[in-house]
Computed example of a mutant assay.
Amino acid sequence: MNNILITGSSGRIGRALHWKLSQNYAVMGIDISPSSATSKIVDIRNYEQLLRSFEGVDTVFHTAALHAPHVGFSTEKSFYDLNVHGTEKVCKAAIATGVSQIVFTSTTALYGYANHGHGKAVWVDEHTVPAPKTIYHKTKLEAENVFKEYASEDLAISVLRMSRCFPEPAEQMAVYRLHRGVDYRDVAEAHLLAAQLRKQKNYDIYVISGQTPFLKSDNQMLFENPEMVIRKREPLLAQEFDKRGWAFPKSIDRVYDSSYAQNVLGWKPKRGALDICRQFDGEDFEILPPSKRQ
């Protein structure tokens, strides 16, 4: 892995990647919005701009996209233009300029309706069939399919379906970290390891989520009485919740299993639920104040 380019470098994951990668590699960041992590203002919907930016680049990390918060504010056409058609232009420009691999930031959100079980939590991994609900989910899945079409011996594609990693109320983030959340710095580490892995597959998908303490045998009780399961599997976290007066969730509907990524990439999420408590106590603005009890 030599020269590196990050699309969407002004975004949350783009900035984390830039910080992680620039310590050891030559990194260029492109985005339509300026930031300290962005070297050039480039619109991925502009093929000519992409061609100029990709010259001499070996590895592209493609994080640029419209996301869930844009639903309802951006048109469906905008989602398709950026998330799908923009992705195809990234692929074409990569092939035209000799880029050897792309690491794509996707999302576990695209599992959509598949996340909801009947009377028990759903265990979600790379074999779970996505069932998109929103235009965001749908276009991210279609972007994955675009990459699958363009993947070849000359252009390896790694797709990382990352779980929730944006600021939320502390008690929610702590619980999410047990079953459907991950730290953005751990996401950046997973991207780096995916790029460093020169493997046989031209295309692969990884679920990137925090280390879960739960077992598949917990699925029904997670749905019915998650507090009991958390007290059993994560007693130290339960003690923190009791001490702080934080409310336990009433139900947990899914568990994201990142064991495949951990085994293949040699990746291990370093920041768990208890780290949320420490970050909150340290007044880390990444962790929002707890929700008010109703």
Score class of each variant (00 low, 15 high):
Asp154Thr: 06
Gln101Gly: 02
Gln239Phe: 01
Ile135Phe: 01
Ser53Asp: 00
Asn202Asp: 06
Asp154Asn: 14
Arg12Ala: 03
Ile41His: 06
Arg233Thr: 00
Val84Thr: 00
Ser100Thr: 13
Asp125Trp: 05
Glu227Thr: 03
Gly8His: 01
Ile276Leu: 11
Tyr176Glu: 13
Pro290Ile: 01
Tyr25Asp: 01
Ser78Cys: 03
Asp218Tyr: 07
Val90Ala: 05
Leu51Cys: 12
Thr75Asn: 10
Thr87Ala: 12
Val264Thr: 08
Ala16Glu: 03
Lys243Cys: 02
Ser33Lys: 10
Ala156Lys: 15
Gln220Ile: 04
Met173Arg: 02
Asp281Gln: 13
Lys201Pro: 02
Val129Met: 13
Pro235Asp: 04
Tyr203Ala: 03
Ala94Gly: 04
Met221Glu: 15
Ala238Glu: 01
Asn24Lys: 14
Ala188Cys: 04
Val103Lys: 00
Ser78Glu: 12
Tyr111Ala: 05
Tyr111Met: 04
Ser152Pro: 09
Ala68Glu: 13
Pro34Gln: 12
Lys232His: 13
Asp242Gly: 11
Phe73Met: 03
Val159Arg: 06
Ile276Cys: 11
His18Leu: 00
Thr128Arg: 12
Tyr150Ser: 05
Pro169Val: 02
Ile102Gln: 04
Leu236His: 14
Pro226His: 08
Gln200Thr: 10
Gly56Trp: 06
Arg185Gly: 07
Tyr150Leu: 08
Thr128Ser: 12
His191Gly: 09
Glu283Cys: 05
Val159His: 03
Ser291Glu: 10
Ala96Val: 05
Val146His: 00
Lys120Glu: 13
Lys250Cys: 15
Asn219Gly: 11
Ala273Ser: 15
Lys201Ala: 13
Gln172Val: 11
Thr38Gly: 10
Glu126Gly: 11
Pro132His: 05
Asp275Cys: 09
Ser36His: 09
Lys232Thr: 15
Leu141His: 10
Thr97Cys: 13
Leu110Gln: 08
Thr134Asp: 07
Leu110Asn: 06
Leu5Ser: 12
Ser35Asn: 02
Leu5Gly: 10
Glu224Asn: 07
Val159Thr: 04
Ile32Leu: 08
Asp125Cys: 08
Ala26Val: 06
Lys250Gln: 15
Ala273Met: 11
Tyr203Phe: 15
Val129Pro: 00
Ile6Val: 05
His137Gln: 10
Glu76Pro: 08
Tyr260Phe: 11
Arg198Met: 08
Gln211Asn: 15
Asp183Lys: 07
Phe214Leu: 02
Tyr136Met: 10
Met221Ser: 14
Ile252Ala: 13
His67Leu: 14
Ser53Asn: 03
Trp267Val: 02
Lys140Trp: 00
Ala109Ser: 04
Ile30Arg: 03
Gly11Met: 05
Glu144Tyr: 04
Pro226Glu: 02
Ser158Pro: 07
